[in-house]
């Protein structure tokens, strides 16, 4: 490995390096403390990240319309939103929801917003996202088999009348076994035919940043910066500057919208979101069914209105999103079930 020996034999008459080492022994070097080293490393990471948000290079591509992640999932107008935190194996039921039932979301009763810390007082978006991430990280990691389905029930409005939407997606695949969507009273199979209509993307069925499966989310890095780097690579060459920041916010939103996010991944995603410049706190927000919460928002260049991710002010679970064109959602229930079409027990 250290070839200097060999080279010396060939090149120098005599052992030049040895003699030089004797003449000039290497001065001892003090250790840089771990703290200093960490600080310099963090600085480098921050500078690299900063550069990614810098001015668009001349000739930057115009922003392309984002492809609808799952064709069957309408993105909220403008930028997207998120869904997520509530990565719980059990179902998460919001009281008062149509078809509602039982279990209450989270632990401490988050019912129609009474309780809750004085939203906003001294809080920043970063602080909120940190709390959301911490809360997510503390939830138990559910044990899930590949044969199960992620079920999410929500109330949604894309500027249209509010209505219920239920979706089942296989834990490990977008294609097989096929998922199921029930919306407007119609049952729509989500599976092979949808995959076939997609551009051929290797690994599509396993999920991606815009259309994740549970297993896909489990495989993601959990380090916030690594997550942003991963997203950056997924959208590479398409976004710069504020466009990139919006894309990152949007992409994280895609990953948590109609998903159950593994606890560590959820924590990483929200910590990553905290690194995106331009994310702001919204002290008081309500989801589509009127449940009060506290939100973070992002408004990209040219967006008419910001996109918001709304969290329960006590449990910090994701409870819905809000975007342009009066788009709004409320997550009512989520859980793992054995078959598409089956409802979580309880």
């Amino acid at each position: 490995m250290n070839d200097s020996r060999g080279n010396r034999a060939v090149m120098g008459g005599g052992d030049e390096i040895s003699e030089l080492t004797r003449l000039l022994p290497p001065p001892a070097v003090p250790e840089m403390t771990a703290r200093r080293s960490q600080a310099l490393r963090a600085h480098l990471a921050a500078e690299m990240a900063r550069e990614r948000y810098g001015a668009a290079p001349v000739g930057a591509l115009p922003r392309r319309r984002r492809r609808a992640a799952r064709p069957w999932v309408p993105a909220l107008a403008g930028a997207v939103t998120v869904a997520a935190a509530a990565a719980v194996a059990v179902t998460v039921l919001m009281p008062g929801a149509p078809g509602g039932g039982s279990a209450v979301a989270g632990s401490s009763g988050p019912a129609a917003g009474n309780s809750g810390p004085a939203a906003g007082g001294g809080m920043t978006a970063m602080m909120l996202l940190a709390k959301v991430a911490d809360a997510a990280a503390q939830r138990p990691e559910p044990k899930v088999s590949d044969s199960e389905f992620v079920y999410v029930r929500s109330e949604v409005s894309w500027g249209t009348p509010l209505h219920e939407r239920q979706v089942w997606v296989s834990v490990a695949s977008l294609c097989d076994p096929p998922g199921l969507l029930i919306e407007h009273g119609k049952r729509i199979s989500l599976g092979n035919q949808d995959a076939a209509s997609q551009p051929t993307v290797p690994g599509f069925c396993g999920g991606g940043v815009n259309d994740p499966t549970y297993r896909f989310l489990q495989r993601l890095p959990t380090d916030p910066q690594a997550l942003l780097n991963f997203i950056y690579h997924q959208i590479r060459g398409e976004r710069w500057g504020n466009e990139l920041a919006r894309e990152e916010f949007t992409t994280i939103g895609d990953m948590i919208r109609e998903s159950i996010v593994p606890p560590k991944t959820a924590a990483g995603l929200f910590r990553a979101a905290a690194l995106i410049p331009g994310v702001r706190l919204v002290g008081h927000a309500t989801n589509a069914v009127g449940r009060p919460g506290i939100a973070v928002s992002f408004k990209g260049p040219g967006d008419l209105s910001p996109s918001e991710w709304i969290f329960d002010p006590v449990t910090y679970q994701f409870i819905g999103e809000r975007g342009g064109n009066n788009s709004q959602t409320a997550i009512l229930q989520q859980g793992f079930v054995a078959h598409a079409g089956q409802l979580p027990r309880r």
């Binding site: 310099l40 490393r41 780097n229």
Partner: peptide, 18 residues
Amino acid sequence: DPDAFGELFDGYTRAVYS
């Protein structure tokens, strides 16, 4: 790849600093 520079930093900071 920014991650790669993290690894580079971890692997060679000592050599660079020395």
